[in-house]
Design a protein around this nucleic acid. Structure first.
Lengths: 148, 148
DNA sequence: AGATAACTGGACCGAATCAGTCTGATTTGA
DNA sequence: TCAAATCAGACTGATTCGGTCCAGTTATCT
């Protein structure tokens, strides 16, 4: 139940970017300086975040990064999925949607827990989707309401 | 956002134990046979689950395991925390409650995201606490409602 | 047009965590 | 007293992950 370090850093990076939204474009190097994260790590992160359409990047001299959407329209679930892939608690629930049907869990079709995982995943994703980037960027913690 | 294999197996093991609740005590070996998991792994799991007061173990000849509480009173959050420790998304939110205050994240007090993690953790835990073992043991998936 | 600045994508390596196994100690019932 | 079964800890091998570096591409400024 812990987040990977990369996903953690991604949240910090997006929060830093959100503070500069509306101002100028910000470079990956600048984000690294502000967050204290190593520059190559930030570069790797912004690549994934751009591919997921959370950041918009402008190349060339005086290029940089901006949020692709307003901070209120970006959720914690978006950020985590951009870096870690789809939210799936159990290995078998991830395979349900991705691959060839080749079994790796010895139980497989006989597993009674298996059909329940997608519902759990959805519940978890709902909780994370209820937290917006603008809430995370706020200096004072705000109430987080859960939604179905 | 993925569960560790051990936590995954713990859910499967608890589900198997729930199906025997009310009947006789069941041995760790029996659980291993039914779930298809290696016996030493199941032993390690039941140790943790017993320490967390989710299973009650009876030693000696004709000993075995039973649920410590009715399946409806055991939540997915209980099982996961028994195996993985407290639910904490970010490393720093775990340290908030556990240790000496020694910093390992270079941002520390200046980190603007930090105060928000406990709220996220609570939201996530709430979602997992809403899923009971009796729901997981049911052959047909049931609706999972979220609660604050 | 040339040079510079910035993002893009991949390969690579060291380290830490984790899954799994084994062995010995403890407890209970016959 | 013997046998059965759980309990607790250390150990090991492998997989994954964090982090870095490099070459390539694109756009602006002089």
């Amino acid at each position: 139940m812990r987040l990977s370090s990369m996903a953690d850093y991604a949240v910090v990076t997006m929060t830093a970017a959100a503070r500069h939204c509306g101002h100028a474009r910000i470079s990956a190097q600048q984000l690294a300086d502000e967050t204290g994260l190593p520059a190559p790590t930030v570069q790797k992160l912004v690549s994934k975040l751009s591919a997921a359409r959370l950041l918009r990047s402008v190349r060339g001299a005086h290029g940089g990064l901006t949020l692709a959407r307003p901070a209120a329209a970006i959720s914690l679930a978006d950020i985590i999925e951009a870096v870690e892939g789809p939210i799936a608690m159990a290995a078998c629930s991830e395979r349900l949607r991705t691959d060839t049907g080749r079994p790796d869990c010895s139980l497989e079709s006989a597993c009674s827990v298996r059909p329940h995982w997608p519902l759990v995943d959805a519940a978890l994703r709902g909780a994370l989707a209820g937290v917006s980037l603008s809430q995370l960027a706020a200096p004072t913690p705000t109430m987080i309401e859960m939604q179905a």
